[in-house]
Amino acid sequence: MSSSKKKVVVLPCSGIGKTLGTVGREIAYELIEDLRPRVTTTTCLPLLMIEDPDAKKLVTDNPVITIDGCPFGCARKSVESIGVTVSKGYRAIDFCKTHRDLKPEGIVELNEAGKKLVVLAAQEVAEEVDRLVSEEKS
């Protein structure tokens, strides 16, 4: 694969038990579908753990950003478990700390504050995506 065809793989927490899992997942979708659709992609996190060859190849061949929803850090750990170092690991809680006025609530659907937080957080992560893309090109 040539460098110009590489994409940044964004892997969020997959949890359905906590709001911050949803925040992580929504940040990933905001990046992949709206902010940086041409240079980002994702895959299903558990595929890495069942040793799915396509998922492993995607993560091995491309820079990876993880966004974890809880201190267990499953997204980052899942990537590291197959011998890949993440390019950048985020924790959803840190975005909440930066934007204390935006308190996310909800799991299936975030409240308005949560949606605003997602947009701001995704803009921050998009800057890292741009940095990784430019690194790959150079």
Binding site: G15, L45, P46, C74, S78, S81
Partner: peptide, 12 residues
């Protein structure tokens, strides 16, 4: 109860 799949797999 929900069992978080990635955590379950990652050693929870």
């Amino acid at each position: 109860v929900t069992i978080c799949l990635p955590l379950f797999i990652a050693g929870g």
